[in-house]
Nucleic acid binder design. Sequence first.
DNA 1: TTTAAATAGGACTAATTTAGTCCTATTTAA
DNA 2: TTAAATAGGACTAAATTAGTCCTATTTAAA
Lengths: 146, 146
Amino acid sequence: MNMHITRKVDYAVRCVLFLARNNDRISSVDEISGEMSVPKTFLAKILQRLMKTGIVNSTRGVKGGFQLARGPQEISLLNVVEAIDGAVAMNVCAVDKKMCGFSASCSVHPVWVELREDIRNRLKRWDFAKLAVIKKYQRVIKRDCH
Amino acid sequence: MNMHITRKVDYAVRCVLFLARNNDRISSVDEISGEMSVPKTFLAKILQRLMKTGIVNSTRGVKGGFQLARGPQEISLLNVVEAIDGAVAMNVCAVDKKMCGFSASCSVHPVWVELREDIRNRLKRWDFAKLAVIKKYQRVIKRDCH
DNA sequence: TTTAAATAGGACTAATTTAGTCCTATTTAA
DNA sequence: TTAAATAGGACTAAATTAGTCCTATTTAAA
Ligand code: FES
Ligand code: FES
């Protein structure tokens, strides 16, 4: 079980958060990448993905940039995570397709399905309106983070 | 967010499950790997890890092999997952250590912490006594798995 | 109408992680 | 003494992640 946030997802989440906080105007890749110290071309790719999945709108040309496609409260963390990573799923079957459907011998299957639902539900509960106003994490965390 | 079970964890879980179901005797790597169609040398490494983390006991020499170090009901899925992958943690901080502790600007932090706890709690709830007797998954699943 | 500032997108590369293999040493029952 | 087993270090191959780079297109404004 690989339980890490990828940079892509991290960047995407923080990017959408930035847009949620500046939703009154259009922001360019340049501005966002500067603000968040994310490689510009990489962020551009991420924004393209968010565009294709209908989370942000883009405007091309001079003065162009990105803006949320709908209200921040209509965008869940799950939306963003699945836009970037595809469907959240833990199943072993993903590893070896032949094992699943043919074999009836996997007792662990329902556990992964259950865990998947836990995670999806939790991510669904957080929307970017909530995230945008959340108290910034003031306490300095050293051990638990790294 | 990378939400897949690695083969290592998959193998480890099924391996411990096998041992739970055959806990009256010692099983060799050869037997387990044959039974589960897992590369033998790779499984050996995994069992070494499970050994070091106190989940299984080993007996060396002829007639040697592995056995659970304690009752199946005393071994949680979390135990096995963390034995193989290390601490379950999602924090972005893991990606860029400099970001955490220095910056107080990450609103998403508490979300990952919360999600982490969800996952750990769920994994903690499943022990291998429960898993060993679980109804084998009979329904053929095609779409949701792959 | 030209230009410069922007996104769109394909093709590529580098770095890291995952998934192993291979070999040698050690232990131990027969 | 030998053969069947685990222990463990060092290595390799494959896959994924994290990017870069280049060219095309769009568009506001000089
Ligand atoms: S067969 Fe689907 S998780 Fe095991
Ligand atoms: S600083 Fe720890 S998750 Fe953002």
